[in-house]
Design a binder for these strands. Structure first.
Lengths: 191, 191
DNA sequence: CGCCATAGGGTACGCGCCGTACCGTAAAAA
DNA sequence: TTTTTACGGTACGGCGCGTACCCTATGGCG
């Protein structure tokens, strides 16, 4: 029988881990289950990843697809809403559950946290700053609004929606409210 | 030998669980460890709490002390900063780590989430709304700012500080920034 | 082409914790 | 005092961890 090695095996393990993640969530991502599903044994897994957290991140990164295009509708409100809706869609998906699990698991694992963040929708503030900059250029927002903490406030509030409500998805009204009651007034207030 | 029963035993178990929490965090809170520490066996523990999550919440509630007095310095900025600093102090303590662990564990346990929230610093928006109302009464803030989502924005942003930075405590500058760059401008923008 | 270091496969181990079950007995209730 | 309740003690099967061992297919190298 053909025995897989190197990259081929690594790929198979990662695929198995990704499958396990989508099927049973992060809780189901056990070294044993992954090895089983990959048709190999824990040995091969442990040779590559020191533990389930590392494997989880690797598998998550395989699942995640970076959507880097920045909306440019000509309206700050629409741009922000579009970004929020995208993130909400992603966080509502099974993938989002996985991501939240990973975040939770990273609470006591700093380098794990770093790994997750650079692959997350709100990775840097650059994306949000870009949207804001365009609004400033259009005269829609004051230049004083160009502040990382200001720019990312909307997404931070959305994240909070997930943390505090236990629901798997945030209603669109919440997104609209965040934009209309918080984000835009905030921008306005910085003039 | 004296055999404890009822409330006495329940108390001993809860104390043991609380000790275990402060000593080893939520990760160390195993049914076996608690039973061991309480000088009893898992039997008595399982009779009272269905699992470690429930026991964790119960033990946490024993540790937490409700500080319900609302600051009233005569200045919205000072009131908000004081509230943030209080919460930051609490979240920075070992108790805060426990709380965050519980929150993370509650991601897939809705009723557990509810239990945690009603004992948390940002339990309801009432506390924050009260502070805002006083500011409105003083003419410091527009009445249009009286919105639950607006009122709690500061604490939500602080929570985010904990989630995204991996550090066990938030620097005071972050708190000041949240207030001066976000919260107050937001209030201002709603006029 | 054949040798051999490398890395995968198979298996087993001790550990810790889970959740449950059973039994004898102390303590409270009747 | 008798009865009922609930605690203490113990054991179980199950699972996942992380490690260690041996055997063997594989691919590179001489």
């Amino acid at each position: 029988m053909r025995r897989r090695r190197g990259a081929a095996l690594e790929d198979a393990i990662l695929q198995a881990a990704a499958d396990e993640l989508t099927a049973s969530g992060y809780a189901g991502l056990t070294m044993e289950a992954v090895a089983r599903r990959a048709g190999t044994n824990k040995n091969a897994v442990y040779r590559r990843w020191p533990g389930r957290a590392a494997l989880g991140v690797a598998a998550y990164r395989r699942l995640t697809v970076a959507a880097t295009d920045i909306p440019d509708t000509g309206s700050l409100r629409d741009d922000v809403l579009e970004l929020l809706r995208r993130v909400n869609r992603q966080w509502s998906s099974p993938l989002g559950a996985v991501q939240r699990d990973l975040f939770a698991a990273a609470a006591h694992d700093p380098d794990l946290l770093a790994l997750i963040r650079e692959g997350s929708a709100d990775a840097g503030s650059t994306l949000w700053l870009t949207v804001l900059e365009r609004a400033v250029a259009r005269g829609e927002a004051p230049a004083a609004a160009l502040h990382p903490r200001v720019a990312t406030t909307a997404i931070v509030l959305l994240r909070n929606e997930y943390v505090t409500r236990g629901e798997p998805t945030a209603p669109d009204e919440a997104l609209v409210e965040i934009v209309d009651e918080i984000y835009l007034p905030l921008i306005r207030g910085r003039g």
